[in-house]
């Protein structure tokens, strides 16, 4: 039987009836139409489905949508607006990844961007070691990670400049 769910998704108050077995990932993709979070492994290995749940980086494939009752969810779609507050511009984190050429196929990017956002929230000037640890739950099959680490360094610098 479906059960009621109320939460905030990318700042938008959202209400729905969902089956208890529905994952947060499926809810976001199929009910909210947000395809930023990707369905990779569905086992908590790849981090392609990662979102911020009340500010914490989590794998949405390992969470029932109903567990997010009352929570604030941020998907990559909610990462927008530059430092000057212009909503149709890329966020500094996204700008940095674009400038560093850190994306190839792009499948890991939503998770990588949110992992970066959550890292920089906690630590505005991370070292390479901290950067690598922060993305250790996000797999990238294309880049070899070096350009991603570079992008995160750049994102930190851009964010500090404001």
């Amino acid at each position: 039987m479906k059960q009621p769910l109320r939460l905030t998704v990318n700042g938008q108050p959202t209400e729905a009836l969902v089956s208890p077995g529905t994952s947060l990932l499926t809810f976001l993709r199929e009910t909210c139409g947000l395809t930023g979070p990707k369905r990779g492994c569905e086992e908590g290995e790849c981090g392609c489905c990662a979102v911020l749940l009340d500010g914490k980086l989590v794998d949405s494939c390992l969470i029932f949508a109903l567990e997010a009752e009352g929570a604030e969810v941020l998907t990559v779609e909610g990462l927008r607006g530059d430092a000057a507050g212009r909503p149709d511009h890329l966020a500094p984190v996204q700008q940095a990844f674009a400038e560093a050429g850190a994306s190839q196929c792009g499948f890991c990017m939503p998770g990588m961007l949110l992992a970066t956002a959550s890292l920089l929230e906690r630590n505005p000037a991370p070292g390479d070691d901290e950067i690598r640890r922060a993305i250790s739950g996000n797999l990238c099959r294309c880049t070899g990670y070096t350009p991603i680490v570079k992008a995160i360094r750049l994102a930190a610098a851009l964010k500090r400049q404001g």
Partner: peptide
């Protein structure tokens, strides 16, 4: 235990 998204849960 896993990576950061796992340890946050």
């Amino acid at each position: 235990i896993g990576g950061p998204p796992i340890r946050n849960r």
